[in-house]
Design a protein around this nucleic acid. Structure first.
Lengths: 340, 340
DNA sequence: ATTGGCACTCAGGACAGGTGAGTGCCAGCG
DNA sequence: CGCTGGCACTCACCTGTCCTGAGTGCCAAT
């Protein structure tokens, strides 16, 4: 039984629909592809595919349109990420290599992704919890006010101000700086609590309240409630979509994109930096994104992911191309960060 | 001659148009406002106002719509910024006071503005050039690699990595930290070049290449080419506009909003933190914003502006309300920054 | 200067008919 | 048994026509 042909038909329909943005009918399909059978046969196949839920008809006398389930099958079994051309790779690399600091890397990456894919791009800053401490700095602002600056190995900088219970001399600050850094510099932020647990015991009793205060601020704001950050680019690409892509308006999508929490959840379970994940239409948890697809990947210096990046667009999307671009960008960013 | 009435008519038309989003005709105008004259009289006035360029007709048999010139007159002479209610003020203040650091202040501010005005909000980070140095920190990364961290009085943190011409000992780094900070801590970043000019002369000759390298990096990246940053919120509000507001699509507006340069130029000549400026339609330099209006203000700790903030929306906008909100938010942010 | 009256304009909604791309089904063929 | 050509059917969409109503400009009268 030519079950294979049915899959060919599905693939052909998706390809046509993605490029023309119009429901595709049996006749135009046989014209544009060498399927070797007549349109009537295709019609039977299409009816079967619709029966199984891979296709749908906007209205009776129109062509077919892929369903979320159809796209899912396509992504899983009928296509693979399309590698970029050497020229594109070269352009990506040299563009990213021009960055001067982490902010710059992240912003360049997000713009690059938006431009390559013509979709909305999202990049998460390297997660604090998964980063290591490069240096912890304490700066005196006044007798009882201290500025804490944390610098991670990825170049991320976080700072907090803190009111001390008592005055602290410059020497004590320097001493503290040494104690903290010798214990946690080079370690992962997540391990900080254990490494620092007994630190208050090692200082003179009169300094203990200050040290406890500093320690708890550090742990609380940087380890327990680390601020995750994301940046966006290419929102304007959403306006190139048609009413067919987003039923009524792009409103709910734009609204979803404004909520950090929603964006972060896109990368929620990112753990490795190798695989590209695709979430299609109804598969998205967030209600406003039920008509959109997300192609995402982790990225990081080594194989483990530091954070996520990806793009978002209508379900009618060039999946192979998008996946290829996301994969490539994730790799290069990881590389750049590893060197930086 | 009742020239006054003509202005009343203009004001009434703008108010009606802003709230209904429909061209307003002479009849509905006399129904909704106590103008004390008949619709025929109003028609004459409207014809005159159109003659002078304050009104326009979408098509012959339709009501009138304000032109950019009409809005300009309205903003300059027919209205004033509408103060917020005490309840609103209270809400603003307590919301902003909850911020933990500068990033948080800026992000809360932009979200607040978007929510208050129902428009797209833009907030610029306190400009580096107008800030003072709180502390300059040098961190050893390797023998010949140094991390420079600048912390300003507004809480902004900038960092750069630098390859040194020769090795530098820990003591030398500490020495350098002292020399730099004793000269420029507390001074404005813009004054740094003069204050640091003779610094290389004060160190031993063998250290001079390193010091020169550090100095030039500091000056070049932080003073000569300071990275200005802006954040956005409320883009989704643009989708609440009608085709009447943005002729074809909101595309050019979204595109303009993605370019940092364009956004920064919105605040280009911001110098004082008192006045609220309004730029209407064609008055905007950027082409994509010719159908939009911008309401902006400087904000800063003292009377002088550190940076700009504002909102952007269709020319059909509640100017008094928006101006009131922008003014109030600018004041509160300034206040918070002055304390922090 | 203001007003009531009047003729005029024209976008937008309602309705009708025609067109064509698309479908499902079926009988016949290899 | 799968494929195909043929055929009747459906229905979105386009086009043209007509109608309505909100709105206008102009003018003579107050």
């Amino acid at each position: 039984m030519p079950d294979d042909r049915r899959l060919d038909v599905l693939r052909a329909i998706i390809e046509d629909y993605v490029s023309t943005n119009e429901p595709v009918g049996s006749k135009s399909l046989v014209e544009r592809h060498q399927l070797g059978v007549s349109s009537a046969t295709i019609r039977n196949d299409m009816a079967a595919l619709e029966e199984e839920g891979y296709l749908a008809q906007p209205h009776t006398s129109a062509g077919r349109v892929p369903t979320d389930k159809g796209y899912r099958l396509f992504v899983d079994r009928l296509s693979t990420a399309k590698p970029l051309t050497p020229a594109e790779r070269k352009a990506i690399e040299s563009f990213l290599r021009g960055a001067v600091d982490l902010d710059d890397v992240v912003h360049r990456t997000v713009r690059l992704l938006a431009q390559l894919t013509h979709q909305v791009a999202v990049v998460q800053y390297p997660s604090l919890t998964r980063s290591s401490v490069r240096h912890l700095e304490f700066v005196h602002i006044s007798d009882t006010r201290l500025l804490i600056v944390l610098i991670t190995d990825t170049g991320r900088v976080e700072q907090r101000q803190l009111d001390l219970p008592g005055p602290l001399s410059d020497e004590a600050v320097a001493d503290l700086r040494g104690r903290f850094n010798s214990r946690i510099a080079g370690s992962r932020l997540a391990d900080a609590p254990q490494l620092l647990a007994d630190l208050p015991d090692t200082v003179p009793a009169d300094q203990r309240p200050n040290v406890v205060a500093v320690l708890s601020t550090v742990l609380e704001t940087l380890v327990e409630h680390p601020e995750e950050r994301v940046v966006l680019a290419g929102t304007a690409n959403l306006t190139r979509t048609t009413p067919l892509d987003f039923p009524r308006t792009i409103r709910p999508v734009l609204e979803a994109l404004e909520e950090q929490v929603v964006l972060l959840r896109l990368f929620g379970e990112v753990t490795d930096a190798q695989t590209v994940r695709v979430s299609i239409g109804e598969e998205n948890v967030h209600e406003g994104l039920r008509t959109a697809s997300v192609v995402s990947s982790g990225y990081g210096a080594a194989g483990t992911a530091l954070a996520g990046l990806g793009v978002l667009g209508p379900t009618r999307m060039d999946y192979p191309g998008t996946m290829g671009a996301v994969r490539a960008v994730a790799r290069y960013v990881g590389q750049i960060l590893a060197e930086g």
